[in-house]
Every structure is written in C-alpha cells, then in structure tokens.
Computed example of a mutant assay.
Amino acid sequence: MKELSESIEKIIKQAGGTWGISIEDLNTNDSWNWNENEPFYAASIIKVPIMVAVFHAFENESLSLDKKLILKKEDIVGGCGVLQHLTPGMELSIYDLTTLMIIQSDNTATNMLIEQLGKPTIQNTMRKTGLSTSTFYHKLMTVPVNREGINTVTAFELTSLLKKISEGKVISVHACEQMIAILKQQQIRNGLPGKLPPQDTRFIGENNPWEFAHKTGSVTHIRHEIGIFYVGKRMMIASVLSKDLEDDHSLQVFSDIGLEIYHFLNN
C-alpha cells in the first residue's frame, strides 16, 4: 500500500487542485486516506445513496421495484441521461429508473426517484448506512436559489459505504448483489478506468481480466469517482473526489490514478 499511496500522492500534488481520497484493500484491509473527511459538493455521486434508499424502501416493502412511473414533461431536466431526449408519457419501472440513474447518470431518472422516495427517506437512509457527515438537500439540475443546503459527500464515508455493500452488510445480501451488478454496468468509463487495458476476451464465457463497479460525478471544475476494482482475486475500493481543476486535465489525472491502482492489484 505504501508504494501505491506514494504514487497517487505524487500524481495529485503535480496535478494541483483539492483532493479527498480514501482507498482500502479488501484483501488485506490496508487503507490510505488523503483529506478523507473534507466535504465536497456531491454532484452525481449522491446517486449512490439514492440507489441505496431505493433498495431500502424495497426491502421494507414500501416500494416495489416493478412499480411504473410515467415520464412527464415537467420531470425532464438537462445534463446527463437519455430520458431528456425521449417522449413524455412513457412508463418506466423503479428498477429501470435506478439503473439509468447509475449507468448513464440520468438526472431525470434521479429526480423521478427522489420525488417518489421523498427527501426525508433518503436522508434517513443515509444516516442509517453511516453517511452522518454527507448531506442531501435537493434534486439534480433544479437547485433553488434560496436552498436549505447543498448535497455533499466525503471520501471516507463513501469508501465505508462501498465496503458495507461489498460485504453484504447494507439492507440485505440480495440488495447488495443487485447494487453491485448495476454499478458494474456503468457506461461512463473515461475516468479511473480510462487507461486500463481492454476487457475483450478471446472465448465466450471467459472471465474479464478486470471489472469496476463504480459511479462518476462531475460539474465544472469538480470531478469525482467511487467504486470497487476487481482484478483477478484482488479487490480495492477507491473514492476519489476533486475540485479546482480544469475538466480535461482532471480526466487525465483520474485515469493515471486508476492505472496505478490496476498495476498495484495486478502485481
């Protein structure tokens, strides 16, 4: 872990900006942290706690994953996601909206889920799962001028949450399995996995050389990514939060960090 932490520290010092990082080797329980308790504006990383709240409501039988919601014109917001380009009136299940929220970071899907769950439910679920410093106050792309607060996260709490999910200790083992499966379908892959080798396999059914169950989040001069690396039999959680960097530059830095983690686990 010392070699990896020194490599990452060198990368972020050369990059500039402000960083909050928390990584943990799930095979050895070794960890390394950098400004891990500093709150960052959450951007789309808040969608992971929202996903947890969806499955918590399902386990409590207060919400069915099969329940259909109708896409209405007033639901549609900009930013990431495909729903903003589709025709109002279509029906989508809670499960499909959750999947779109994670793998495409769909803001419209996210806001529909927030409306369905309610802000207090999401806040209570965050507290129950150990996100005591992180906060949730508003929908995406519709932040009011006179807002109560902003959505924030810390690297340490996110790594702790992902560790609980990886161990099946959030809600239920079944819920954790479903959440990991969704995170592994992530389609935005230009950050931490940006420089990793292709996942192409030669034979049908052959295991991928690596997998990454993750979620991204970015707005101008802010970029975050959290997830679980699976390389062979090695596993590592990485929560990397950043601000005050140019967007193109931060992408390169994230890719460099991801490659260092991959080499560490592969060796």
Rank of each mutant, 00 (worst) to 15 (best):
G79A: 09
M90L: 13
L69C: 08
E115P: 03
Q178K: 15
F229N: 02
F212T: 02
I150E: 15
R234G: 01
K195Q: 11
R223A: 05
N27F: 10
E157Q: 12
A175P: 02
Y230G: 01
I226W: 00
Y95A: 08
G232H: 10
I257S: 04
V240K: 00
L83N: 05
I261M: 08
G78W: 14
F136Y: 08
I182C: 02
E3D: 12
D25A: 07
W34S: 07
L65D: 05
N107C: 11
M235T: 11
S44I: 03
I11E: 09
T159S: 13
H249C: 04
I150F: 12
H263R: 15
Q84T: 11
M101Y: 04
E211C: 08
I21H: 08
S250T: 12
A238I: 12
N267H: 14
E59C: 06
E74M: 05
R234I: 03
I50Y: 02
L161E: 01
R202L: 14
T216I: 12
A42P: 02
Y41E: 07
A155G: 05
G118P: 06
T125V: 15
S172D: 12
K169Q: 14
P198M: 11
C80A: 15
L245N: 10
G227D: 07
L245I: 08
D200V: 15
T201Y: 09
L158A: 02
E6A: 13
G149R: 04
F229I: 03
D256P: 01
V153Y: 01
G79R: 06
P120L: 09
K13R: 12
M112F: 09
E157I: 04
T159I: 03
I103S: 05
I11T: 14
K67I: 04
H174N: 15
F264W: 14
E74Q: 14
E260S: 13
A238R: 03
S105P: 09
E36C: 10
I103Q: 08
F40G: 00
T135C: 08
I76L: 15
A155V: 02
K184T: 08
I150V: 15
G17K: 02
N27K: 11
V173C: 10
N190Q: 11
S239W: 00
Y95H: 09
N146Q: 12
T154G: 05
G217K: 05
F40W: 06
E3V: 11
Q185A: 13
N60Q: 15
Q84R: 13
M1H: 09
R147K: 14
I8M: 07
T133F: 02
M235D: 04
G194F: 04
V143N: 01
S166F: 11
V253S: 00
S22L: 07
M90S: 14
L69W: 06
V52Q: 00
H263V: 08
K233A: 10
L183Q: 10
I204L: 12
V170W: 04
K215F: 06
I23N: 05
G168D: 04
E24M: 15
V145S: 07
Q104V: 04
I94G: 09
A155E: 00
T87P: 04
W32R: 06
I11S: 10
G130C: 10
K73C: 04
E260W: 06
E177W: 07
